[in-house]
Simulated scan of single mutants.
Amino acid sequence: MKNTGPNFRHLYYFWVVAKEGSITRAAERLGLAVQTVSTQLTLLEQAVGKALFTQQGRRLILTEAGRTALNYADQIFLLGEQMQEALDEADSVRTRLSVGISDSLPKLTAYRLLEATTQLATPVRLVCYEDQHEALLGDLVLHKLDVVLSDRPARSGTLLRVFSHQLFESETIVVGAPSLAAVYEKGFPGNLNGAPFLLPTRNNALRGKIDEWFEGHNLRPDVVGEFEDNALLNTFGRRGLGLFFAPAALVNDLAEQLGARLVGRVPQVREQFFAISNERKIKHPAVEAILSAVPQGGLAAA
């Protein structure tokens, strides 16, 4: 017998039960009788030809088919929520832009890149999410995001239909709190043996280049901390716990917002920044503004 496929009302009841963890709590949330919700679940399982839950004591546990169905239901109902938001905003004077920001991207860089969206004729409402690079690309593919800002491109050879646009490339600098910078700014970089450093973790695109630079200059710094999150690294750096690398284009921002002082320039270690977008027939005007904001020369340092 051919499966008839899911009824979306039944799928919604399944989704609520999976989220609540029980039919009783789901029924309370839906304002329905327990028997009604239970019947709808049975009809859904009959329609798809798979058991979606299994009983363990008093608990309902998703089967493998149930986990698969929940993954799709999450996408379906999230898109439904986004559709409603889009309809609610149809008469709004602001255009919504959902941006994913890689946790390894310097937040000052993210701000400078997004600054272009504030200069459009139509005002933009920014909705920013921070996560790991690969997780954000997954959300981009599902159209949960309009663009991802990252320090690395999407990997080639994958099935993801996304496109990486290099925004700019910057040499790096070593900076630190004034008291620490005063110790190491003279004789740079030869005086960095044993210097305390805060570095990105080894899965960061920049870390390999930094390690190569240390090796090339026969330097053995004292690595006092490694951070996946760039903002946390900067917080420790602001407290004077170690020197750290940063894009040269942000030297003035670093001084103003973090109180960090330039120790030395490292032109051999260059950092790249990308905007990653979906293939779209209709371009988002705010994404286009980001892509065209720094066509040459990178961000201004001033």
Rank of each mutant, 00 (worst) to 15 (best):
Asn203Asp: 15
Leu192Cys: 05
Leu142Arg: 14
Thr201Arg: 15
Leu149Trp: 03
Leu105His: 05
Glu130Asp: 01
Gln132Ile: 14
Gly187Leu: 10
Asp151Ala: 13
Val141Asp: 08
Gly187Ile: 10
Ala116Lys: 02
His217Gly: 00
Leu126Val: 02
Leu97Tyr: 00
Leu199Tyr: 02
Ala181Asn: 06
Leu137Ser: 04
Thr201Asp: 14
Glu89Val: 00
Glu226Ala: 11
Glu89His: 06
Thr118Leu: 11
Arg161Asp: 15
Arg96Glu: 01
Val183Asp: 07
Leu142Met: 11
Ser104Tyr: 01
Lys144Glu: 11
Thr122Phe: 00
Ala205Pro: 00
Asp222Met: 06
Gly208His: 10
Ala181Ile: 05
Thr109Ser: 13
Leu137Tyr: 09
Leu137Gln: 08
Leu159Glu: 13
Phe163Gln: 14
Leu206Glu: 14
Lys209Phe: 05
Glu115Arg: 13
Arg220Gln: 14
Leu126Pro: 01
Arg125His: 05
Ser92Trp: 04
Arg220Thr: 14
Phe163Leu: 11
Ile210Tyr: 05
Ala182Tyr: 03
Thr109Pro: 02
Pro200Val: 09
Gln82Lys: 15
Ser179Arg: 13
Ala116Gly: 06
Ala135Asp: 09
Ser164Tyr: 07
Asn218Val: 05
Leu136Arg: 03
Gly176Ile: 03
His143Glu: 15
Ala135Phe: 09
Asp211Cys: 01
Asn191Pro: 06
Glu169Ser: 14
Thr117Lys: 01
Leu120Ile: 01
Phe227Asp: 07
Val175Glu: 09
Glu85Asn: 03
Ala195Thr: 02
Val174Phe: 04
Pro106His: 02
Val148Cys: 06
Thr118Ala: 11
Glu171Met: 07
Leu136Trp: 02
Leu142Gly: 00
Gly138Val: 07
Glu81Lys: 13
Ala121Thr: 15
Ser150Gly: 04
Pro196Ala: 06
Ala195Cys: 10
Cys128Ile: 10
Pro196Lys: 11
Asn193Arg: 08
Arg125Pro: 00
Leu113Ile: 14
Pro189Tyr: 12
Ala154Asn: 06
Arg94Asp: 09
Ile101Thr: 08
Thr172Trp: 07
Asn204Gly: 04
Arg94Ala: 09
Ala195Asp: 12
Tyr129Trp: 09
Glu226Asn: 05
